[in-house]
């Protein structure tokens, strides 16, 4: 049995700078390869095949072919990364930074504008 066994540890950590960050002033950079949020990187390449939506385990993505829209409900997304892996056109990407908190439910929607020269046929 020993007393005050933690004092050495406490003295050591008192001499060091704090283990925590001064949050809003100093932000954490997420490591490479972290799964932060799914984003539509290149809307022009998307062919609205709907594979990402079908593969999504939580059905967070809705793809409307006729209207050329790609939508994501971030509150449903579990950040598994399946959609990014399966997209045949590499339109999606997984960013390391997390999405900011929401105050209201919303669906993020991307609509492809008609393009002068159509992208490579599906």
């Amino acid at each position: 049995m020993a007393h005050l066994t933690i004092s050495k540890l406490l003295a050591k950590s008192a001499a060091k700078k704090p283990a925590t960050r001064r949050y809003p002033a100093e932000k954490r950079t997420p490591p490479k390869g972290a799964r932060g949020r799914v984003t539509m990187k290149q809307l022009e390449t998307c062919v609205f095949c709907g594979v990402c939506g079908k593969k999504c385990p939580t059905r967070a993505i809705a793809v409307k072919r006729a209207e050329k829209t790609w939508e994501i409900d971030r509150l449903k997304c579990i950040l598994c990364g399946e959609c990014v892996e399966v997209c045949p056109k590499d339109s999606l990407t997984m960013e390391e930074e997390h999405a900011a908190a929401f105050v209201a439910k919303r669906i993020e929607s991307h609509v492809q504008r008609p393009q002068p020269a159509p992208p490579d046929p599906p």
Binding site: T58, R59, A62, E71, D73, K105, R106, I107, S109
Partner: peptide, 16 residues
């Protein structure tokens, strides 16, 4: 989730 795989409810009228 009660309606697995069913089409999602009407999208929010406030698109971003």
């Amino acid at each position: 989730p009660s309606a697995e795989g069913a089409p999602r409810a009407a999208p929010d009228p406030r698109p971003t």
